[in-house]
Design a protein around this nucleic acid. Structure first.
Lengths: 350, 350
DNA sequence: ATATTGCTTTGGAACGTTCCAGACGACACG
DNA sequence: CGTGTCGTCTGGAACGTTCCAAAGCAATAT
């Protein structure tokens, strides 16, 4: 508790220190920082010099207290899913942090109990620790969205309000159907006709959306889809099992999967049977995870434009926190296809 | 700018609100929250009731201002390395966030210019936005450590002070040499005798440390290492090239790699040559990334105990921020080996 | 000459909390 | 009965910033 003078870090300079050095009032220094055009140019220069000399930076806590804003954005992260390929969240976090920085915001991470989707939000909100939230895990409806909405808490969702299309909160999402259509068309263009689908259980909105891209692309070319689809859990083992069954029963020459995790399951089956991914059977995944990028012979995968998503999310946040708040419509972005060996006859070659 | 009453979120209750409701002074409420044992039990109960009723939670900004502490820990993250397997950082972030929560802290992420290792630290420090930092990227010495040390900024490093063993800051690290020795011994136990090493360039402290584990394990069994080692950049292509050369020139039957990324390069070479990982040639990686977990037939990999690392880091942080600060010695943790198909004769089977 | 306007600068109050010194009553001790 | 001590509670000040209203001053308009 004792403050040993000189040993602890020197207290950072305050507004008053700068004011004294520049020979002006505190308020003038504040204006120099926040409204420079209010000052006469010579005083501005003098104050800026003093700021520079002292290495002054406004104290965050004081500023937050006065302005009732923390410039922090809360993002809840769940425990890592071991044995899963898609670390999509991580790529998004990186993009979000970088984009937020340009907007003068920082990202506050908090942990969540996977069983309680609301845990953590309330405390941060009531203690005014963050200005807004970015909500990501909207895979099964999104209780957070409705809850936060009821609390009048500002938030932007990465993911559409599937269960409530009339929701009014801002959201950004990626068109999964378009992505899977892209993947399927890519395979059809390579001459494949029996393209199978491995996706998630029916209660996943996202899964059904992605699946619809596959059916659409198949039907557009007049190809049947019956017997070519399988719905399982999002694990490597499930993908492996589903692909084994499909290969036996439907003899597909290509697979489109709802995730890289499932696609890796297909690669397992192919390896077991001595089939070469790409040459013998084509495989396309979803998320363009690191796994897809490094597994031999390279897994073709639908890539979400997470950088753009982050940009749109931050844009929406800024609108939301502006005075007065401006909330635009939802934004739907289109993914791209990262083509690799698993879907090209070339086989190996990166 | 206009505040439309009733439409915006109601202002959270303050100490004064609680005090009025409980019929006590502000200070008493504060004590009820921070020093409950100072109050008579009946007043405490009354105040707690009022707190509960109003859903009061202390305002973070005000508390931070007064106590000069933010309960935030800064963590700098770099842009994702595309085409790299090891997302070790992400697993660590998750663990850190969860452990921090238990310690009443949150993690503030900020972005860094990969070229300037110091960018971002200064601003957060001077604006008193964080109490301390967790420094992770100490791969090539660590300018952050010395810089932060000179600034008397509290920080804990994940990574040893390689270039300055007499550094006095707290650190936590994983024994890479032990991990590679573990991996090598595992292979030797399987009957391999010509175990090759693919690691990083000589200027990487971590790389040399890991390599020493391989040589130690080899020499302990009286096996030679000459001609069996290769030092390259940490990319899949490099691992692939290095393994191709080694296979031609030194005829190893197993590979130990400094990273999963390099190990994936080996898998590429094996696939090209029609060799089966595990059955024909064994491969062990480092980091136990998601890639290792899902790639067929499963990549055996050295797994860093990141959960423990996070626990130790937070423990060190708490010591550092205590009054008076207590800084213990560095902590070195031992990794484990996650054995999968790539190093077991069983081949496929998970 | 006086009032008006616009530009620049200023002092005081406020944000919500915790620190500090002191007040109050009860109780024990000399 | 006076005095000291302890346990409990309180009011004022302070943290460093921004908001607000107003003051000073020069130039212009009346």
């Amino acid at each position: 508790m004792a403050r040993i003078p000189g040993r602890l870090p020197t207290a950072p300079p305050t507004l008053a220190d700068v004011a004294e050095r520049a020979g002006v009032s505190r308020q003038t220094v504040s204006n120099a920082v926040n409204n420079p055009d209010l000052l006469r140019s010579d005083t501005l220069l003098r104050v800026q010099e003093a700021i520079e000399d002292l290495g002054y930076l406004p104290n965050r806590a004081a500023r937050n207290l006065r302005t009732r804003a923390s410039h922090l954005v809360g993002l809840r992260i769940n425990p890592v899913q071991e044995g899963t390929a898609s670390a999509i969240m991580d790529r998004f976090v990186h993009s979000l942090v970088e984009t937020s920085r340009e907007a003068g915001k920082h990202v506050l991470l908090f942990a969540g109990d996977p069983l309680d989707p609301l845990a953590g939000y309330d405390d941060l909100l009531r203690s005014t620790a963050v200005d807004a939230f970015v909500v990501t895990d909207t895979y099964l409806g999104n209780p957070q969205a409705t809850w936060l909405g009821a609390r009048r808490a500002p938030f932007v969702a990465f993911g559409r309000p599937w269960d409530n299309p009339s929701a009014t909160h801002p959201w950004v999402d990626v068109d999964g159907a378009a992505g899977c259509a892209l993947a399927t068309t890519h395979l059809l263009d390579q001459g494949h006709e029996r393209v199978a689908w491995i996706g998630w259980r029916k209660d996943s909105w996202i899964g059904e959306d992605r699946r619809s891209g596959w059916t659409r692309a198949m039907h557009e070319r007049g190809l049947p889809t019956t017997g070519l689809a399988s719905r399982v859990e999002d694990t490597v083992a499930s993908g492996r099992g589903a692909s084994a069954v499909l290969l036996d029963e439907a003899r597909p020459t290509a697979f489109v999967c709802a995730s890289d995790t499932l696609a890796m399951g297909v690669l397992h089956t192919l390896a077991e049977r001595g089939l070469a991914a790409g040459r013998d059977v084509a495989v396309v995944g979803f998320d363009d995870s690191q796994v897809a990028q490094v597994v031999p012979p390279g897994l073709t995968s639908v890539r979400q434009p997470l950088e753009e998503v982050a940009v749109e999310v931050v844009k929406a946040l800024e609108g939301l926190l502006a005075h007065p708040p401006a909330v635009g419509p939802g934004v739907l972005l289109t993914p791209t296809l990262a083509v690799r060996g698993s879907s090209s006859a070339v086989g190996f070659g990166s």
